[in-house]
Design a protein around this nucleic acid. Structure first.
Lengths: 219, 219
DNA sequence: TCAAGATTTTAACGTCGTTAAAAAGTTAAA
DNA sequence: TTTAACTTTTTAACGACGTTAAAATCTTGA
């Protein structure tokens, strides 16, 4: 009996494999971004990436697996932006978070639109999803609202939970409308901030309320 | 040469035709509601409705046409509820509209979920859609906000347009989350009203603001 | 009754995702 | 270098899908 030859992680074979994987995924992202997930045909993909369909199955998998890979990349990048957030300046935190996301999306707009469409399809963002991305994401604005209450910016007549959930909803809606092509990334920014500022204004102290109104009319 | 025999509108043939049409659509609605649009197979549908696939094409059309019919029915019913709205009591108008919609959806929850999914798929609710349903729908809360400004309920520091759009957004998001099964119709009502009351509170006069806060904490 | 028209069905086409199995390529010990 | 074991790619097919031409059947009205 001969020794088993396990694939070396740095071998030329593995590197080439990864290259072809990325070539497949790159084309997949472009097609989904441009024409939707149902426009992604494995035979097309194989042709574009200069290989055959079963090779795609070998390297990545079927349509659902291709989707999974794209989604995983998305979640990774989203969590990275999320964790970058700090509560040093409560007032600016909300705006900064939207700004960060808009900048992230701007890096490769087609890719992110595609990934969100894919994520929606697979139920990634469902509120009871196993990934827990919803729960983790909604907690951010809730915590920020709590901090704003402690800082006296918000009066506390509306619970941080209620306010935070609604703020996260504003972001979700703006994102969805951008993903569906209703407006561009600047529209996303304006729409998300409009919703956030409106929510905050509902329970803001007078001075903060004034600042929010000013920001709102300048959007 | 014989006379052309145009189909009589009240003939037995036409009545039977309509019956089969409805049988097909009924099964289609049930399948889409239960398992999504992509789970709708024409061969299944033909079997369930006791006829063959080309007959479906003859009576209604392909998948896209079946979708169109379901969507048309939806738009019809939505516009009906919308037009029922009056601005007699500005304060109650927002809540009444949500209540009306929730009651409409409750009549046949599966059907309406299915129809909204179908509508989303076909871009019916796109903001630049030819049906103009978006433009017509968003105008309702904008007008209501204008009326509330005239009545002195809203201070006018935020434009009726900005406020109205955001209020419509709250409804859209709540509806979407209900359609996707994140919560039931009561959840839809609570979520939509939360968003609406929060938006209004951002520009409400002190007494109105108090009432809104009370309603919010009771949701 | 019967011809013209309406309707349904038979039977196929092309495309899709997927996969078994053969072919080709790669690796490392002998 | 040769060769056997293993990996990877490709050939070739399967079944399911939406769709449609054309044949078969049914309905209508003179």
């Amino acid at each position: 009996m001969r020794q088993m030859t396990l694939p070396q992680s740095g071998s030329a074979r593995e590197i080439n494999k990864e290259k072809r994987k990325q070539r497949i995924l790159s084309h997949a992202r472009a097609v989904i971004a441009g024409h939707g997930f149902e426009a992604l045909k494995l035979r097309d993909l194989a042709t574009r990436a200069n290989l055959t369909v079963p090779t795609i199955y070998n390297l990545i998998g079927g349509k659902e697996e291709i989707l999974s890979v794209i989604i995983e990349e998305l979640v990774e990048k989203l969590l990275e932006v999320q964790n970058r957030n700090s509560l040093d300046d409560v007032e600016a935190a909300f705006e900064q978070q939207i700004q960060d996301l808009a900048e992230l999306f701007a890096k490769d707009e087609d890719y992110y639109r595609a990934a969100f469409i894919a994520g929606d399809r697979s139920g990634l963002f469902e509120q009871s999803s196993g990934s827990g991305i919803f729960a983790r994401s909604v907690q951010l604005p809730i915590d920020a609202c709590s901090a704003a209450q402690s800082a006296g910016l918000l009066l506390g007549n509306i619970s941080a939970e209620q306010l935070g959930r609604q703020i996260y909803g504003s972001y979700r809606l703006a994102r969805q409308d951008w993903v569906h092509g209703y407006f561009d990334l600047e529209g996303f920014r304006v729409q998300a901030l409009t919703g956030i500022f409106l929510c905050l204004a509902a329970d803001a102290n007078p001075e903060f309320h004034d600042r929010l109104i000013n920001r709102l009319s300048s959007l």
